[in-house]
Amino acid sequence: MDMLKVSVWRGAASGEYRSYEVPRQESQSVLDVVTYIQRSIDPTLSYRFACRVGMCGACAMTVNGVARWTCRTHVAKVAKNNTLQIAPLANLPVIKDLVTDMREFFDKWARARGQFVSGAGTTRKDDFARVAADSPERVAANAGIECIGCGVCYASCDVVSWNPDYLGPAALNRAWTLVNDVRDGARAERLAAVAGDAGCHACHTHLDCSERCPKNIAPTASIAGLKRAVMLAALKGEL
């Protein structure tokens, strides 16, 4: 049987790569490989997954140096000479093995005012807001709304690695979808929250986030949109 040589990060911030031999199978995903190691070789291996079908965003890891969603990444696509190196996501503290602490990642969504806030004076008795599907705002929001919060963009971002306070592509993309929500009631605060050295202005448009996003979202475009929106707000004296 064809065997895969897999080296897996074991430990936390300090640790080492440990090697495992995993039977190669057809249509095998990287998550299948990790699961095989835990269930058949070493039950102490820690990793995170839930849906296994690319919906939940839990299983992202660094595979041969590149952040990927492992459930939808075929071994055939990424293995070089039947070898794989699997590590936790970069730019996040490692709890154990392949499990990272995502708190900072999601706290930044909150810091970027990633929650929907209804407009002043609206009540639950109001009729549904009607948003035309082809309105520019809805189209812009649609482009970014399918984020599953996997952290691949955040782990791939150079600016995050230089400036740990940088809100990062996912949080800024989220803010951009809300800026384009015509029901939104916190535009000014959100734009102020995403401006500056830790926000959209820090983006270098390296496009790693857009290149790596498994959902084919382009956070770089969302961040550019935020730069424009923040600039217009500043020019109008609304920032």
Partner: peptide, 18 residues
């Protein structure tokens, strides 16, 4: 404006002046 958002502590001080 009814923006009562829970924002986690630790927002960077140097980003104060948006």
């Amino acid at each position: 404006m009814s923006a009562e958002i829970q924002v986690p502590a630790g927002a960077p001080a140097h980003a104060a002046s948006a």
